[in-house]
């Protein structure tokens, strides 16, 4: 019998070329990073079960899930608001069935959908990040409007993305996260990279820890 290997492939396998791009000289205004190896689960409260869903989340992550567009850090996971009475649970992928464990934790109170392969996580930071983002995002990312931990479900190139500013990331060190649909990732990467080139880009791959 033949042997089957199940190599994993990122949707940015070809588009993301690690290293420096654009800019003048050695300047790096924007860092672009794909974070691989994440587990992502969509949690939607069942009808009439919002309170129980919050309780279940608190038990699992020691933190209440956000009820407004925010991202909160909990135990081993970030909970990102994704709509009314729903949020996404982002964590590092582990061996074993993470999804089954979460399903059990929310049994009967929320519906879960595994989106670990449905989205690609791209991180944007650096002094030119906001200027680059302004070219493909209509969000107002001013500190007073979009502080650390703020989140939004929004559209880039007419495509829905989950967007949030890393909790605790301040001033020039603000880190912006984008979950983009897997099938769009290659195309959006080019849009994002093109928008960043004038500032000088360092592109890299990171693994969720």
């Amino acid at each position: 019998m033949a042997d089957f290997s199940w190599n994993v492939q990122s949707p940015l396998q070809q588009a993301l070329v690690p290293g420096r791009h654009g800019g003048a000289g050695t300047q790096v205004g924007v860092t672009l990073e794909e974070v691989r190896g994440v587990s992502l689960v969509q949690v939607m409260a069942r009808r009439g079960r919002v309170a129980e869903t919050i309780k279940a989340a608190k038990k699992l992550f020691s933190v209440e899930p956000p009820d407004t567009p925010r991202a909160v850090s909990g135990r081993n996971a970030t909970l990102i608001w994704s709509g009314p009475d729903q949020f996404m649970v982002l964590s590092a992928r582990q061996t074993g069935d993470q999804f089954a464990k979460l399903t059990a934790g929310f049994a009967g109170v929320a519906s879960l959908s595994d989106q670990s392969d449905g989205r690609c996580l791209i991180r944007i930071a650096g002094s030119g990040a906001r200027q680059a983002l302004a070219k493909f995002s209509s969000l107002d990312l001013h500190d007073s409007v979009f502080p650390a931990g703020a989140a939004a479900t929004t559209a880039v190139d007419h495509t829905a993305v989950n967007f949030w500013r890393e909790p605790g990331s301040v001033d020039e060190n603000a880190v912006f996260n984008m979950l983009v649909f897997t099938s769009f990732a290659d195309s959006l990467w080019h849009t994002i990279l093109d928008s960043c080139l004038e500032y000088g880009v360092q592109a890299s791959v990171a693994h969720a820890a």
Partner: peptide
């Protein structure tokens, strides 16, 4: 011509 109640879908956002 005036104020009207309409359905809008926030499909590029929270899907509400």
């Amino acid at each position: 011509a005036g104020v009207m109640r309409e359905y809008w879908y926030h499909g590029g956002g929270c899907r509400s």
